[in-house]
């Protein structure tokens, strides 16, 4: 056994590619499943939400305007980095979720594979969701999917990594940008993911991760006029109808959540991708 004191990490928020503390100065203790202290996490505030939305909006033109091939490569690169941090994620998932090492391993592997699955979607979306439309007249007409914009994501409370990846990756695969509120009690894998994203080629602001209470931050995201969509997965069940009502103020796209958290190990489908896509139909005359 070494005598050396280990260097503990300060866990922070991830906004616009930087790692600030909460402007509120608040933090809260994060414990493992047995109640042993792991770390202090920053407790994000309303103002942090606003900063994160501003960063996400600023990043949107560049990210949505990148070629699909480029977005695919950037996202695949994230999977490569996740693989490199595999051991750290396994330890954090095991500590956070209280699962055995073998189970934690399979969760992390699933999360990495899921990321790869979504990375591969970027340049297929327009083919699968777009169409050429045979209108009854001399017009060339096509429909293409486009990203919805800025999405507020209340990440799952239970599944700290696989669940998080399952709700985040489809947002950014479409070209939308995200403000994520992580699991309150299990935020460490989310913070580590933000470190991965910061060292990847994902531009700052495309993903912003806030640790803190979905119950506190959700209403600000749901009512924010510059947020286009909101995923209620990690919201307390008792608040979901209110959040949906608040979201109606600017006609947000709402991803409702089932009453209990889905089984994230099940194979994903295209439904989440679709929720972050708009369809644009373009007309042009032919022959005149």
């Amino acid at each position: 056994m070494s005598d050396r004191m280990s260097v503990l990490k300060t866990y922070k928020l991830f906004i616009g590619g930087a790692f600030p503390r909460s402007e509120s100065g608040r933090s809260y203790p994060v414990n493992d499943h047995r109640g042993n202290f792991l770390a202090n996490a920053a407790q994000a505030s309303r103002k942090d939400v606003r900063e994160a939305v501003t960063a996400a909006r600023k990043a949107f033109p560049g990210w949505s305007g990148a070629t699909a091939y480029n977005r695919g490569q950037v996202l695949y690169r994230v999977a490569e980095l996740l693989e490199g941090r595999r051991e750290q994620f396994i330890a954090e998932v095991a500590a956070s979720e209280g699962v055995q090492a073998k189970r934690a391993q399979s969760i992390v592997d699933g999360a990495i594979d899921r990321w790869v699955w979504y990375a591969g979607w970027t340049d297929k979306l327009a083919m699968v969701f777009g169409s050429s439309n045979p209108v009854a007249g001399p017009y060339f007409n096509f429909t293409m999917p486009e990203p919805t914009g800025v999405a507020g994501v209340l990440a799952p409370q239970q599944s700290s990594l696989l669940g998080l990846v399952s709700v985040l990756a489809p947002v950014i695969a479409t070209g939308s940008t995200a403000v994520v509120v992580s699991s309150l009690d299990r935020p460490l894998p989310a913070i580590t993911l933000s470190e991965v994203l910061a060292t990847s080629d994902v531009p700052g602001g495309v993903v912003n991760i806030l640790t803190g209470r979905a119950a506190e931050l959700g209403p600000w995201l749901a009512s924010h006029a510059d947020v286009n969509a909101i995923d209620l997965t990690g919201a307390p069940e008792s608040m979901r109808a209110d959040l949906e009502r608040a979201a109606a103020g600017t006609v947000k796209r709402v991803l409702r959540a089932p009453s209990s958290e889905p089984d994230w190990t099940r194979a994903p489908d295209i439904s989440r991708l679709k929720r972050y896509l708009e369809h644009k139909t373009v007309w042009h005359p032919v022959g005149v």
Binding site: P134, H279, K280
Partner: peptide, 10 residues
Amino acid sequence: DPTAPFGGYQ
């Protein structure tokens, strides 16, 4: 046209 999807953003 019935074959041309119609609807809004935002």
